[in-house]
Design a protein around this nucleic acid. Sequence first.
DNA 1: GCTTGACCCTCACGTTACGTGAGGCCGTAC
DNA 2: GTACGGCCTCACGTAACGTGAGGGTCAAGC
Lengths: 248, 248
Amino acid sequence: MSDMEYSIGEVAKIAGVSVRTLHHYDEKGLVVPQRSATGYRHYDSAAIDMLQQVLFFRELGFPLADIGEILAQPDFDRIGVLRRQREYLVGKSARLSQLIDTIDRAIEETQGERTMSADEKLKGFDQGPHAAEAKERWGDTEAYAHSQKRLSGYSKEDVEAAKQEAEDIAARFGELMRSGASSDSPQAVQLAEAHRLHIDRWWYPCSKQMHANLGDLYVQDQRFTDYWDKHEPGLARFVSEAITANAA
Amino acid sequence: MSDMEYSIGEVAKIAGVSVRTLHHYDEKGLVVPQRSATGYRHYDSAAIDMLQQVLFFRELGFPLADIGEILAQPDFDRIGVLRRQREYLVGKSARLSQLIDTIDRAIEETQGERTMSADEKLKGFDQGPHAAEAKERWGDTEAYAHSQKRLSGYSKEDVEAAKQEAEDIAARFGELMRSGASSDSPQAVQLAEAHRLHIDRWWYPCSKQMHANLGDLYVQDQRFTDYWDKHEPGLARFVSEAITANAA
DNA sequence: GCTTGACCCTCACGTTACGTGAGGCCGTAC
DNA sequence: GTACGGCCTCACGTAACGTGAGGGTCAAGC
């Protein structure tokens, strides 16, 4: 088992990325190499492995922030992630094959051998697996429901009422937490149920199981955590635990 | 032959890009649709074709400015460009296959079934065909020779002398052009030869044929044209013609 | 004709992911 | 000690949009 160390210039050259890129990834906390006494970066095999993961996800179009979250998961499972990346790369390869078909058809069209619709010409340039994963990940949330224009059938009053109700619930969760009540107290559980009903009513059908999944997401995904914690620091965890208690 | 027109939202949806992106491409002059009396954008089949070309090149990693240049060539050859894009897409597809192989090997490594070097882990993330084309395109130029550190064996004085000589030649070309001499006059031809010898001496072996190719590039590629024209507007063409005369 | 809602426009600030250059330190060979 | 390639941090700038504001347009329904 070789445990060589590489300078930043060596890594940059091998990987075909710039030194600046590696600096950036260090700053962002994505790939943080060891440092010499003089401040030089030294990349050992762990750092190389991490860089590989980052570059795979980058290749697949994931924003660096998302890459960071995925790789920072407490239950980080390297082999599971590699499998996932493989799946996406295979999908991307298939999409490329489609694009090649599209070009072949475009060449035939240019030669007068066929006609193409706008659809045929422009299909295949959709976003990559990051968008697909976002859909999967957000599929059970109000954020995605928003983007699906679930609210298009509501009046402005309805929209306002729905938003107000969401804010009320969040505020009451905040109060409850500040009052020192535990996250599995009857009041917390009641509030969690109110939250579930709110989602069920305004956004989409929401079973207790789905609600529990959602609660997990609130503490696993920074964007959700931020949403709750802006009301009160630590609220995301509190709400998540209340939801779990409600679902039990 | 259907000649439908699409609104910007329709095109965005079909192509999987944002309206903002299409605005941006309009601003940049890449895909400029017709406009209604009220200012709405209408995309006809010509605009759709242009967008397709842009999206193919974007897919391949070309910067928009370069895409604009390629598609703005006076001798724009749609079918030639499509063939070129196909070639690059096939190459990209092959590179993806390599990455999939790399993941498979990484999975085996994780399971203790094999060992990988840093090289193996990080290979394949090189830049796409844009970088390859840049290499091709710039391969015969001093700009690329620079990046190849051709000068690494020279002293600072040598580097300065080389630069000074280049500036002298450019200045003399400028004077000659301002004096009204024709680009195929003996003086111009002499200067072109001096330029070729300069390249031959300082940068890389430069035959008259290669020099002629370079001269073509000076008027075909905006970056070269800019280099010469900053000395004197129109100088790139003058130099190119002098080089052609010298190579005859 | 009026209302409504989806879609369009321009404007402009902001974000993401680096690119680039300045100024200076470090490591190695001569 | 000198020279040169490589390293560091700092910081401004770029490319390619994302996002929101404020308001006009279009088409369907009443």
